[in-house]
Design a protein around this nucleic acid. Structure first.
Lengths: 261, 261
DNA sequence: CGATAACTTGACTATCATCAATACCAGTGG
DNA sequence: CCACTGGTATTGATGATAGTCAAGTTATCG
């Protein structure tokens, strides 16, 4: 690890600062007392990664996997000519850097988008509730990644923004980080553009249109979705669910040509 | 499973038809004799899924994970209005439907793009070489998925096609399914469009331009890449490598704005 | 309160989508 | 052997979505 990590400050240790992460993990599958204690112990040993610093670096050996306790991080790839693409985001309660094979090499750079508080992910004994939680978390990660592909491939700018904000809203809800329909959104429009495969200018225009249409409020790092359900329906967003069957996205999947926005 | 699976026909069992899959698996990490035997046994019990039939269905319970022995399959999502997006492809030697958590529900529909020959993936004893191979395979899958996100988000039509064909070329090479720079490509331009987030018409135009530029030959289901390395370099494609460190995609990943094609 | 980053806006362009024919090609049945 | 058929590929004309360039206008934060 190269980042300038430093010990957590005393003022960060006040009660409940790691509650969102804990709550999120517990939402993936109920944790028993033993695992809860494991997590608490791990969280006591947290550390901070400053904004814009890497948490993992592509091609570099990976340390143990980590739990993000506070802040936002993202997997990013930068092309030789400077184009940048965020591939996925990590929110409080997400596990970063799980590997199952012998070679612990980071397959992507993970960047702290805000100041991040992290702790080592405690090892999960075979058959433990924590092991289930990790597995479910990984499945969710993949589901979001698949969703991102659909977003980039087949949604227009407007839909991408709506879909993205809905996803974030859902994920933050699991951690108890939403208030009403609103939540903290530390991303700049430029970062949003790099997640959605658009330019900052175009993102800006679409956001303003959404504002005019009354779908959205976005002021000083806080987003309010006016009618999440309606938006979700118009996009046909299917929310990943680990706890039951999903509504089918389309119909028979057997045929059907390509017909972009 | 709903597909009309039927027992493999005698004429499919001639020597070596499953060789590509075996070769691909072995390329991920050397298999010892015991695991090789497990695979051989599993492959003896293969079955066929006809073209356009589902191998897994979104939201439905999943059977054991399977190894694709012959043919192409893809994870697909279809939006309510008919837009279709292929999220990833399965080639011979790929494992379909691994799950690690208790709830075996398919997170996407997997469609047979050609007639597919499949077998059950033999269970991998803890610590076996096969377990490593499965894990590496999964890591590769994710790497390709990440690549797909970058492709859709930041590459233009021309680059997407080049990058896609390069990926397929690399993957088929591992299974020994390439001859010189050429390989079988059973996808129609329409399917390609649904993978790359484009329209069939535009894909067609870009392909023809690539042909005129001498980058490409594509005739009756067979593709020949003229100069894979040059193409790879101009796109800045980074090939996922499980066996060593990767060339860094860009520079410091610390800063840099968004600047699409 | 000045400086830097973030956001807005306008004018113009380009890439890609849409619509609509037409050409091609393999397999089918007469 | 050949017309017929359905899927696939190709082409042209036109339009819309999103990108580019460049100049402001706010915020935000030492």
């Amino acid at each position: 690890m190269t980042q300038l990590s430093r010990k957590i400050r005393p003022e960060d240790e006040v009660e409940g600062l790691d509650a969102p992460a804990l709550r999120r993990l517990n939402a993936l599958g109920p944790l028993d007392a033993a695992d809860r204690e494991r997590l608490r112990a791990a969280m006591a040993e947290a550390r901070i990664v400053p904004v814009r610093h890497p948490i993992l670096t592509l091609g570099r050996p990976m340390p143990e996997s980590q739990i993000l306790l506070q802040g936002w991080a993202a997997r990013v790839r930068i092309l030789p000519d400077g184009r940048r693409q965020f591939m996925s985001f990590y929110l409080p309660g997400d596990v970063i850097g799980r590997v199952h094979h012998a070679l612990p090499i980071a397959s992507a750079t993970v960047l702290a988008l805000t100041e991040c508080v992290l702790c080592t992910a405690p090892a999960a004994p075979a058959g433990s509730s924590l092991e289930q939680v990790y597995a479910v978390g990984e499945a969710l990660d993949e589901a979001y990644l698949l969703g991102h592909v659909v977003q980039l491939g087949r949604l227009n700018a407007q839909e991408r923004i709506g879909d993205f904000l809905l996803e974030i809203y859902e994920r933050l809800s699991l951690a108890g980080l939403t208030v009403g329909g609103s939540f903290e959104m530390p991303l700049t429009q430029e970062m949003l553009a790099d997640a959605l495969g658009l330019t900052p200018v175009h993102v800006n225009r679409m956001i303003q249109q959404a504002r005019r249409d009354g779908d959205l409020m976005w002021k000083s790092g806080r987003v309010l979705l006016r009618d999440p359900d309606r938006t979700a329906r118009t996009i046909g967003r299917l929310r990943p669910q680990v706890t039951g069957a999903q509504p089918e996205g389309g119909t028979d999947t057997t045929s059907e040509p390509s017909r972009p926005a």
